[in-house]
């Protein structure tokens, strides 16, 4: 994961493992709406590998190698251990190198006997806000959230969903005045957010 040559070799191996794997056809865009049947449907067949996961929230106060010291918003303290199996999201899937002191974080993982949490997934600076679009510019949306003005920056990953449709990189159908659910990454430096998905209704 750290340098390019093993990564290409590893990715080649993983690609062949994926393409040579089981083929499962079928998704479910055109499904039934009957909730009774869904309530009655059996659960999944594989035994869950995780019995109970733990959760942590807060701001990163210090980073020691792969250990994050996190101050919870209600005064708790967490020590979060990242491993090479921890997914890191910060506006996109990324690596621990992108995590900075001062970032906000949500983490899911397994509590360890030494009091740390071995993280399965961490989401850095992620926010999901109900907003109204108040302005559209080339590189940003002006949003209103809880009566506060908020700037949303468009980034290469920014996608939009219109009236329940699939995510698309077409942002040209966003309109001023629309209510919009905005998922993105908060930027502590200027208090704006990088937009990842903008969901609008009809």
């Amino acid at each position: 994961m750290k340098n390019d040559t093993p990564r290409l070799g590893r990715r080649g191996f993983l690609t062949s493992a994926a393409l040579g794997g089981a083929t499962i056809v079928g998704a479910s865009a055109l499904g039934a709406l009957d909730a009774d049947a869904a309530f009655a449907a059996p659960g999944p067949s594989l035994d869950p590998a995780i019995s109970q996961s733990a959760f942590a929230e807060g701001r990163i106060g210090a980073i020691q190698g792969s250990l994050l010291h996190v101050a919870g918003s209600h005064g708790e303290r967490h020590r979060i251990q990242l491993t090479n199996a921890t997914s890191v999201w910060k506006a996109r899937p990324t690596t621990a190198d992108d995590i900075e002191v001062g970032d906000g974080l949500y983490a899911r993982g397994v509590p360890m006997p030494d009091g740390t949490m071995a993280a399965d997934a961490v989401w850095v600076n992620i926010v999901n806000l109900y907003t109204t679009i108040r302005g559209i510019e080339r590189q940003r949306l002006h949003l209103a959230h809880n009566n506060h003005a908020l700037v949303g920056n468009t980034i290469p990953e920014t996608s939009a969903s219109y009236a329940g449709g699939a995510l698309t990189s077409d942002l040209s159908r966003l309109r001023i005045g629309q209510p919009a659910q905005v998922l993105g990454a908060w930027r502590p430096a200027d208090d704006s957010i990088d937009l990842v998905r903008v969901t609008v209704g009809h």
Binding site: I24, V25, G26, A27, S28, A29, R92, P93, I136, R138, T154, P156, E157, S159, A166, L167, T168, S169, D170, L171, S172, L174, V196, R197
Partner: peptide, 21 residues
């Protein structure tokens, strides 16, 4: 804002995956 010539976003693939069998 862009009209989306950039191709299918990864998030759209993830969404398709997470709703799949």
């Amino acid at each position: 804002l862009a009209t989306g010539a950039a191709g299918t976003p990864v998030a759209a693939s993830v969404e398709l995956l997470e709703r799949s069998l």
